[in-house]
Amino acid sequence: MNSDKSDLQEYFRNLAKKYTVTVPKTWRLNFYTGTENNFCSVWGMSGVVQEQEFVPFFPWRYERRFFELKQIVETKTIENVVLCRFSHIADGSVINLQSILYREFDLLEWITNTKIISCFFSVYENRFANVLVRLSDGSIASVEAGTTLPSGQKTLDRHELIARRGVTSDRVVDTHIPQYSVYLFDKTGVQTYTDTDAELFGLEIDETNIVRAAFDFAKQPESKRQEIIVSFLEQNRHLVTLTKQALSSETQQ
């Protein structure tokens, strides 16, 4: 995260102004950038506070690669997913293991439109979790989650869905680390950039997701917002329960 909360608020306000979206004064829109001591917020999160309970917007769902993976499944571009392989390794400076699992479990359920019905966790001292998952449609998944990268290293993640017809992934075939849109080689070394949103140019991907998630919520009619809040609260509780299981025991089902 490069920006502070006021930057994100500014980007959000500009979007709202451009599209004449009115944010009701009755609810508080929160932007977190990773410093608050809130389990859901360590990612950088947007959400609202409803009756003193924070409602996260699951902003990763607004990352274009995840949106497209979901589309590929929903439009049956690949058919009958049987196996998902998710991996997310961070340096642990901001994001802890539980937060990684929270995000990856949400992505797994959201992309496949299923629910997790069982998990087997093999955990090493809150640093790494290898997880086997059974989903409600009978398919299985693996989730590798860790905070083992040295400080300052960019996150390595991968999401692959294997179906009876077709495979989809956010990584290039025959590679095992992410690629970037722009590489700058200069005397200081290599700089990389991946810009995905011209309207919010200048924000990192995670920051873009936060603003987009908040803006999408703000665009909804009031009646729909309440419906979203109920479903997001339910998902939040479900994910908190699942991720706490991972850390409550070295190994458990």
Binding site: V82, F120, S122, Y124, N130, S139, I140, A163, E250, T251
Partner: peptide
């Protein structure tokens, strides 16, 4: 074991394994 990708074979084709080594290393 997941559902088979190939529904017309008699043996499993999708399987994942996790666990631990005696030295505590977790594996997948």
């Amino acid at each position: 074991a997941g559902p088979n990708i190939r529904t017309d074979i008699e043996v499993e084709d999708v399987i994942l394994v996790a666990g631990k080594m005696k030295n505590g290393t977790t594996f997948l």
